[in-house]
Amino acid sequence: MPRTWSGATSPAARPPLQVAARQALLLLLLGVALAAVRWAAWPPRLPLAADPTVYELELSATLVEVDQARRHFDEGLHLFIDTREHGTGSPETIPGALSLRPDTFDDDLLALLDIITPEDRLVLYGDGNLAVANNIAARLVQRGYQNVALLKGGLAAWRASGGPVSPRPDATATEAP
C-alpha cells in the first residue's frame, strides 16, 4: 500500500469504506455538536428525558367522527383546539378554535387558563392525522382535563365534509368568539 514520506498511509490509497467510516465519524461528532447548540440556543428546549406518562396516555382520548364534531360545533358546547404549529399546514382553521402547540404547550395552556377549565369539552385536531393532536391530548389528560376528544381525520376531514373554516390567526392563542 502506498505510503507518504512520513510512513503514514496516504488517504487516497486507503480503502473507500475505511475513509468513509472515518469521515462518517467526523460528521457524526459535528452532528452531536449541532444538536447540542440547537438544543441550548433555540427554545423551547425539549427535555432530554422523555416523560413516559405523556406518551403512554396517547390514544387515551376518544375519537370523534367529523359528523359528530360538526354537531358539537353547531351546539356550541365544545371548544375546538388547533394543535398545529403556526406556519405549518393549511392557512385555515375551524372558526373560534384555540391554539395549543406541542413546542410551546405550557405557555399556550397558561395563556388559556381563564378560557378553558378541566370540565370543558375539548375537540383537538391537526391537519390530517392524529400524531400531534394525540400528544397534546395526552398532556391535557395528564393535567386533569377530563373531556378530551380527537377529531378523526383532522381539518382535512372537516373541510371535506363542508365544515366552516376561517383564516388562521397568527396569535399564540386566540379566544373563541
Binding site: L34, A35, R38, W39, P44, L46, L48, A50, Y55, E58
Partner: peptide
C-alpha cells in the same frame, strides 16, 4: 419542531423512552 418529531418517532414503538428525545434532537442535525 423536536417535540412533534419525538411523537412521530414514538408512534413506531421502536425507540425506548430513554433515547426518544436524544434521537429526536440528534437525527435531524
Amino acid at each position: 419542531h423536536p417535540a412533534g418529531f419525538a411523537t412521530a418517532i414514538h408512534h413506531y414503538r421502536l425507540v425506548p423512552y430513554a433515547l426518544l428525545h436524544p434521537v429526536a434532537l440528534l437525527l435531524p442535525a
